[in-house]
């Protein structure tokens, strides 16, 4: 009877475990192995080498890391600046039409492709914002500029960041704030000294989650980044290395590094904002 009881959850979980092992752990393992081979030799007779990783940690890729992390860190900061008041208002003040605003939060989940395309058109010559620029050269500078890409990325990662902040705000016991008010603290002082310190883990978690999602962004940098960002963003580099230059070894090595960074970031953010999962 007891062995039967013990086997039941295992039986229910087996398909899920089989799916994840077969289609996630095996592929990622193969990716790690492929990252140790020279160019596309993995598919024929593998030539083992560490030169891919040596390449990444040489100066050749310093600019890629700089541009990738510069872009996504800026976008994550923008998310915090806009997202913290948004989450605060959504959890504390909005009573009517709450579901409408929640539904709008789902729209960026449709995919970064549409966000990228919307912004692409917005700044395109003849597009809605083209009147802002006098000459054609200026327009292209705006389209392929960092601020446009940062705003687009921030919109893409906005829901995840708001979600993390909102969870931590909801977790705060309101009676603690009330007792601060009773003891004579003003509303600003209560916010700065009581509310804000209590949701710092959520804010850190939100910032890290934004960065983690930004790492995987692909359509935004490739459509909006112009020559500099589109060529040198790490996620785009994986794609162009693998499918345009057929250098699967190098692409896998960059992919492994990206994945390791993302997993570390998400792990730390999960620890920081207990409970919040995405």
């Amino acid at each position: 009877m007891t062995t039967n009881e013990r086997l039941k959850p295992l039986a229910l979980l087996t398909p899920a475990i089989a799916l994840e092992v077969g289609l996630f752990f095996v592929p990622v393992g193969i990716l790690a192995i492929a990252s140790l081979t020279f160019r596309d030799s993995f598919f024929f007779t593998p030539v083992w080498t560490l030169s891919n990783y040596a390449n990444i940690f040489s100066n050749a890729y310093a600019f890629d890391f700089e541009i990738t992390f510069g872009l996504i860190t800026l976008a994550a900061f923008l998310d915090l600046m806009l997202g913290f008041p948004f989450a605060y208002i959504m959890t504390r003040r909005i009573r009517k039409y709450q579901d409408v605003f929640r539904a709008i939060m789902l729209v960026p989940l449709f995919g970064e492709l549409y966000i990228a395309y919307g912004f692409y058109y917005l700044f395109f010559p003849g597009g809605p914002l083209s009147f802002l620029f006098a000459s054609g050269v200026e327009m292209f500078r705006a389209l392929y500029s960092l601020p446009a890409a940062v705003i687009a990325l921030a919109i893409y990662t906005f829901p995840f960041s708001v979600y993390n902040i909102g969870i931590s705000l909801q977790g705060i016991d309101r009676s603690i704030e009330e007792s601060a008010r009773c003891l004579g603290a003003g509303s600003i002082r209560t916010f700065v000294n009581v509310t804000l310190p209590m949701c710092i883990p959520g804010i850190i978690g939100a910032w890290l989650v934004s960065i983690g999602w930004g790492l995987g962004a692909f359509a935004i940098p490739i459509l909006m980044g112009g020559a500099v960002v589109a060529e040198r963003m790490l996620s785009v580099e994986v794609y162009s290395m693998a499918l345009l230059r057929m250098d699967f070894g190098m692409a896998s090595a960059i992919g492994v590094i990206l994945a390791v960074i993302a997993v570390i970031i998400f792990y730390v953010s999960l620890k920081a904002s207990r409970g919040a999962l995405i």
């Binding site: 996630f24 990716l31 790492l215 692409a251 993302a262 998400f266």
Partner: peptide, 13 residues
């Protein structure tokens, strides 16, 4: 938690 592009690359390989 793995970026989409890395997962996609590992899948096609």
């Amino acid at each position: 938690y793995v970026p989409g592009i890395c997962y996609a690359l590992s899948l096609i390989i």
